[in-house]
């Protein structure tokens, strides 16, 4: 039976059924591993992040990488055309992906992408928002919660001033951005385990 890896970080959702699970993961890791590394490099550039303890840096990244990847790859989901662009650059329709077994995550990603893209953030705003997303990730593994909270407050204040400066007539933009955080958390809670654990379905 045909196997599918319905994740836009792959070249294609179709996987060669003759390949072993491990080889399929190996191929997938060629794009997933650099994507995770990029999240780490991004985190390193967040002012104050490196001042956290190494343990807390790792904890935040473990908890927040999925959410940062969702924000980063939101642009692959075209809500108007109802297509997803895979790494090869080819677009696949929602119907095609559903026929391969894509389910709630696909719907949630379209919904999230549509709302985020509607805010028309520029690169600087998106970058600062992504930083807020990372430091707002689950804190159950954090040792020094106060320092993470202080960093989160600083970044949220910075995001607020940037949005109010750039979007003076759209006061709701900042509120809508903060409301994305629980959306990302529920996406994370519902779907990250399967993706981050790389369960390849035979």
């Amino acid at each position: 039976s045909r196997m599918h890896l319905v994740c836009p970080m792959s070249m294609s959702p179709y996987v060669d059924p003759r390949k072993s699970g491990h080889n399929i993961w190996l191929e997938f890791s060629m794009s997933f591993t650099p994507a995770v590394r990029e999240v780490v490099e991004f985190a390193k550039r967040i002012p104050g992040f490196r001042d956290l303890s190494q343990h807390d840096q790792v904890s935040l990244l473990k908890a927040g990488t999925f959410e940062v990847l969702v924000v980063r790859f939101a642009s692959l989901f075209d809500a108007k055309e109802r297509t997803v662009t895979f790494l090869s650059g080819r677009k696949y329709s929602v119907e095609e992906l559903r026929s391969m077994g894509a389910g709630d995550l696909l719907n949630s990603m379209f919904d999230f992408s549509h709302k985020l893209n509607a805010l028309n953030l520029n690169e600087e705003e998106m970058s600062l928002f992504t930083a807020v997303v990372l430091v707002s990730a689950d804190r159950s593994g954090i040792e020094n919660v106060n320092s993470v909270e202080a960093l989160q407050e600083t970044l949220i204040r910075a995001l607020r001033s940037l949005i109010l400066k750039n979007h003076p007539n759209e006061a709701a933009t900042f509120t809508k951005l903060l409301l994305k955080l629980p959306d990302l958390r529920s996406l994370n809670n519902m779907h990250s385990e399967q993706l981050l654990a790389f369960k390849v379905h035979p």
Partner: peptide, 27 residues
């Protein structure tokens, strides 16, 4: 390249990238 069937894979990648001594055999 660590075993994909567990979250250890993600933590492994994060630690190496964070500590800056990432030896990426896949490249």
């Amino acid at each position: 390249v660590s075993d994909p069937a567990s979250n250890l894979g993600l933590e492994d990648i994060i630690r190496k990238a964070l500590m800056g001594n990432f030896e990426d055999k896949t490249e």
